[in-house]
Design a protein around this nucleic acid. Structure first.
Length: 443
RNA sequence: CGGGGAGUGGCGCAGUCUGGUAGCGCACCCGGCUGGGGGCCGGGCGGUCGCAGGUUCAAAUCCUGUCUCCCCGACCA
């Protein structure tokens, strides 16, 4: 039942005064999210639907490479983190229970999953294995910013692979690359997979998935068949960075300064982007510290080779808003839209046109179409404006004109183009088929 | 953590300099009109002016302290 009169979709004409990023402004204005504190956000019903659509895409692809979904706790004993040497990380929230026992709020789950691997994985016969969950992460960020782009609490899909040797890890890593590529492609986002700095993680290889957008926090260097983080690009002997004609002074770290980048003489471009996923080859760092070993065929105990793979659904949502918004609002990719179809009823209650819209809604609902129905007593301008703000890919309109023409008007959100009108009162099966085909054809 | 800015009803704001019973637009409620792009008229509800202390006959306004939020940078396992 998704009639707007029975829903909570608190849209606003004006964005919060302190909002800067497009996704921040639009997600609040469209009634998807609301803020509670710095970097602390609530997902309202329509926003959570979008989030869950990302989650489902991710779930399907990680399941497809053999991932096993589970759920690990956020509240964890500090001792586990002391063992891995991460207890003193500033971003880690620490607390005590009533007895004074030290606890932490997990910012990631390597400790937890390795703790269980140590308990439950005994033999080479138990390997390889991929475990994952969707769970809240808590991070005491020095500076939360840009709506849901950088928050102190957020849901992450994190998977962990367990192998008997480095070769196995490379295989599990390659499987994740494939899954991540498919996930990003399915979301409809523009994205790059870039080599990243393994940095403090001390791992043996890592990639980041970056979605270019104006609110991006990192710069990505892009060329024909090449994409890398600026940090990585700077260390690439084939890449040259020279100051531009305007003096080359870059204001801050954001792209758009006067630098000119080339690789083997070929021009590269610099784009701001946000990190929407990352994958790490951890090696045996955590398994050694937490005693996660297996016995091989000779009865020898060996450390398990691990990989760690994260995706932030909220960032994918925000990146989609950033990439596809126009001056009227959000324009979701089909895969992420809170609803595939936004049905607008124009007539007042108890008019023939309203009856027709009600009837159409019932038909769509019965056929399982993912539809939101604007049955409010509001003017057409307000309804159209809200529909464009919310950004569902297909808008259907039923009003007096529909009765005269016998057609349901159809507009596509992307580009606000008129789509093929559908017959009003026609065969429901044919109507649903036409809508399905249309949605399949949309990005 | 360094620099800058801001806290007044759900959202956006004025009022603060120069102290004198808190105001506007939107939203919301009631009535009426309108009905294909945020429409119009009338009547309403809603605010300890972030918090604490101080000055004063009187504080949103002046003083002190404190909390919170935003932006830029640093940071980002």
């Amino acid at each position: 039942m998704t009639r707007l009169t029975e829903y909570l979709l608190p849209t606003e004409k004006q964005a919060p005064a302190d909002a800067e990023a497009i996704s921040h402004k639009l997600m609040v204005r469209a009634g998807l999210v609301r803020q509670m504190g710095a970097g602390i956000w609530t997902w309202l019903p329509a926003g959570w639907r979008v989030h869950q659509k990302v989650v489902q895409v991710v779930r399907e692809e990680i399941d497809a490479i053999g991932g096993r979904e589970m759920l690990m706790p956020v509240l964890q004993p500090a001792e586990l983190w002391r063992k891995t040497g991460r207890l003193q990380i500033d971003e880690l929230f620490k607390l005590q229970d009533r007895k004074g026992s030290e606890l932490v709020l997990a910012m990631t789950h390597e400790e937890a999953v390795t703790f269980h691997a140590a308990q439950t994985i005994d033999s080479y016969r138990d390997l390889p294995l991929i475990l994952y969950h969707f769970q809240v992460k808590e991070r005491d960020e020095p500076r939360p910013r840009a709506g849901v782009l950088r928050t102190r609490e957020f849901v992450m899909k994190d998977s962990y692979s367990f192998d008997r040797d480095q070769g196995g890890l490379e295989e599990r890593y390659a499987l994740h690359v494939g899954a991540y590529d498919r996930i990003m492609a399915r979301t409809g986002l523009r994205f790059y997979r870039v080599e990243s700095d393994v940095g403090m993680m001390g791992g043996i290889g890592a990639h980041e998935y970056m979605a270019p957008c104006a609110a991006g926090e990192d710069d990505v260097v892009i060329g024909e068949g090449y994409a890398a983080n600026v940090e990585v690009a700077r260390n690439d002997p084939r890449v040259q960075c020279v100051a531009g004609a305007d003096g080359g002074v870059v204001a801050g770290g954001k792209a758009g300064g006067g630098e000119r980048w080339t690789r083997d003489g070929q021009a590269l471009t610099l784009e701001p982007a946000i990190e929407i996923g990352n994958i790490f080859k951890l090696g045996t760092r955590y398994s050694e510290k937490l005693g996660a070993t297996y016995l091989d065929e000779h009865g020898t105990a060996l450390p398990i080779w691990m990989g760690s793979y994260g995706i932030g659904p909220a960032r994918i949502v925000a990146a989609a808003v950033e990439q596809f918004a126009d001056e009227h609002g959000i324009a979701w990719p089909v895969a992420l839209a809170p609803f595939a179809v936004h049905l607008v009823a124009l007539g007042r209650p108890a008019t023939p046109e309203r009856d027709a819209a009600d009837g159409l809604y019932d038909t769509l609902l019965a056929a399982g179409v993912d539809v939101i129905y604007d049955d409010r007593e509001a003017g057409p301008g307000e309804k159209f404006a809200d529909a464009e703000l919310l950004g569902c890919p297909v808008r259907l309109t039923v009003g007096r004109r529909s009765l005269e023409s016998g057609e349901i008007e159809l507009q596509l959100r992307r580009g606000r183009r008129d789509g093929p009108a559908l017959p009003l009162g026609g065969e429901p099966a044919a109507l649903v088929r036409a809508l399905d085909e249309l949605c399949q054809s949309l990005p």
